[in-house]
Design a protein around this nucleic acid. Structure first.
Lengths: 336, 336
DNA sequence: ATCGTTGCTTACAACGTTGTAGAAACCAGG
DNA sequence: CCTGGTTTCTACAACGTTGTAAGCAACGAT
């Protein structure tokens, strides 16, 4: 029941190529011919075979966005913006959830990219620059932290500055025992490393010593990890008066665990997150957080990709920084 | 820099087809030939062109999951399960965020499906059965409420029963003025209609009158809509002692608005949601909700799709019901 | 030596589309 | 009615892959 150009052509009494011309909006087709063809297309419910078109043209009009986990709302929100930005270029976006493992990410970077899609916007978690080298079959734009010397365009936010500003804000509230949640030892944790660095810088700037006991690791950055980290801190007798979580889901988990421990936020403990996800605007209390300009990140990524597709594929990689701001809400408000 | 079978063949000194045979694991290839070919493949970093393969074979090994919004965590969580279930079949899942508009959904149902992917798991929001008829170019499995007479397989949960049980639970807590949030007038709102019906049934069963003023519409089912609905109810002088929200994000918004109004949950107002999203396990208070078995939904959907792909494409549509349970948490606990 | 048999390899065509180049139809001006 | 230019249409090849059928060795059995 699936029809081809040939079927339409026979029905309309024209050549296959003429139908193709109609489908592609080619200028020089007589109005009555066009009408006949269009009617045949409608009658047969014809739709072009994208694989064949792609094989011939080398373009599908589809790009992919590969993210570690859609459960992390940051990526879901980012996805919406990418879909919207890509629509302006006439692209369809398909989203590939890699799961964050190195093998799956490698597969996403090579596998999906292979000819089915025109380009890839990729937010890697586990892959390093080495892993990515030589994989760029299709044009690729990386999101997130800089992967040093990665052979691809890049859109990032200034993680160090954002973390420093956030920590500085907590300090300005008079807090001194500021915990950090979300550090990671693995090679993967580029974000974690940068945010930790910003945190440490702010402490140094304020003349506060870096206390390792206040830094809690988190294997993943889910709510459960944030809650577990708080419980661990409290169980070991560490009593922070503020917590900087490396993302918002960690912070929401932290809020919950603090609540369960009978601690008030922000009175006893101020809490700040990173990402500005929707949840944080409705949590109790609402969440102070770093708000990266997701819309801008998405638009820059799509534009970089468009540049690669239309222009020079071998131009040196470009690196763009998207702005961020600090969204002050109840969990660590503007003034004490 | 992209290589084809032909390049590998020349390098290995064999025919194109032999390389193809090696790539596809065909039996009768001499070990030394195979080794030569594999080395050439590795040296050239060859990877097959999926479009060409698809054109020839009619299969890509890629299926799509089309959902309205990934921002709604339910869909994000569902996506994870679908990706995982599909992996067992050797499929890659690409996710298409439709945005929920009728035009985009129609496009998703026809457009993406066109030859680039082997099958589609589709969670429609706006489309009716009529819209879907005749669109099933690729095999399709529908998720969510039954779309009457849709010409496709279907996986659903018993919305009416789930809503009735939840409302009954609120009644068993001694609540009598139970609001419902999330009703929709549009044709789209199949879920809304069914959940409202279950709510009404439970009231009738308990001999409680249906009070229209307690039923608040919500254009979308986001947190902001839930919060707005509560504010609207309170502003109009309606004082519910319980709220049944048609999904969890509505409920989270409701929790926030109740908090802002100085009402305690569950002491003053009990709250229940629908979907069992991760957020609800960490919100303050934690959220009582209908927990559909998402893992099962995903697995059933993938299996139905597998059946279509391997078997009879014209078999009559099947309809499967996935189980659900009521997850009792702080916002409307087990006993008063 | 001859004849299958089996194992391995290859040439060719086809999947549905579009770019190229050129043929046919049309039109205006002489 | 012809000429030359433009518009409209068509035949053919090609994109990279795999199924088909057939070719070519090498082998043991006759």
């Amino acid at each position: 029941m699936r029809h081809r150009l040939k079927d339409v052509a026979e029905r309309a009494g024209v050549s296959v190529k003429t139908v193709s011309n109609v489908v592609n909006g080619y200028q020089h087709v007589r109005p009555d011919t066009r009408a006949r063809v269009e009617q045949a297309i409608a009658e047969l419910n014809y739709r072009p075979n994208l694989s064949a078109r792609n094989l011939r043209k080398g373009r599908t009009g589809v790009i992919a966005l590969a993210v570690p986990e859609l459960d992390i709302p940051y990526f879901a929100e980012l996805a919406r913006h990418v879909v919207s930005a890509a629509a302006d270029h006439g692209w369809t976006v398909l989203i590939d959830q890699t799961g964050g493992g190195p093998e799956q990410e490698r597969k996403a970077a090579r596998g999906i990219g292979d000819h089915l899609i025109d380009g890839l916007i990729f937010s890697p978690l586990a892959l390093s620059a080495d892993d990515l080298t030589g994989l760029h079959g299709t044009p690729m734009v990386l999101l997130g932290e800089r992967v040093d010397h990665a052979p691809a365009d890049h859109v990032m936010v200034d993680n160090v500055a954002a973390a420093r500003e956030t920590t500085a804000h907590l300090i300005s509230l008079g807090r001194r025992r500021i915990a950090a949640i979300g550090s990671q030892r693995t090679a993967e944790g580029a974000s974690a490393r940068l945010r930790l660095a910003g945190y440490a810088e702010a402490l140094t700037d304020a003349g506060i010593g870096y206390d390792e006991r206040l830094v809690a690791p988190a294997p993943a950055w889910h709510r459960a990890d944030g809650a577990a980290a708080i419980r661990h801190l409290l169980a070991t007798g560490v009593r922070p008066d503020a917590v900087f979580c490396f993302n918002d889901t960690l912070a929401l988990g932290a809020l919950r665990a603090l609540h369960e421990a009978g601690l008030r936020v922000p009175a006893d403990v101020a809490v700040a997150g990173f990402d500005d996800i929707e949840d944080g605007r409705f949590s109790i209390p609402t969440l102070t957080t770093v708000a990266p300009d997701k819309e801008r990140i998405a638009r820059l990524a799509v534009e970089l990709l468009a540049g690669r597709l239309d222009g020079d594929r071998d131009a040196p990689p470009r690196e763009l920084v998207a702005p961020h701001r600090l969204a002050l809400r109840e969990s660590a408000p503007a003034h004490p």
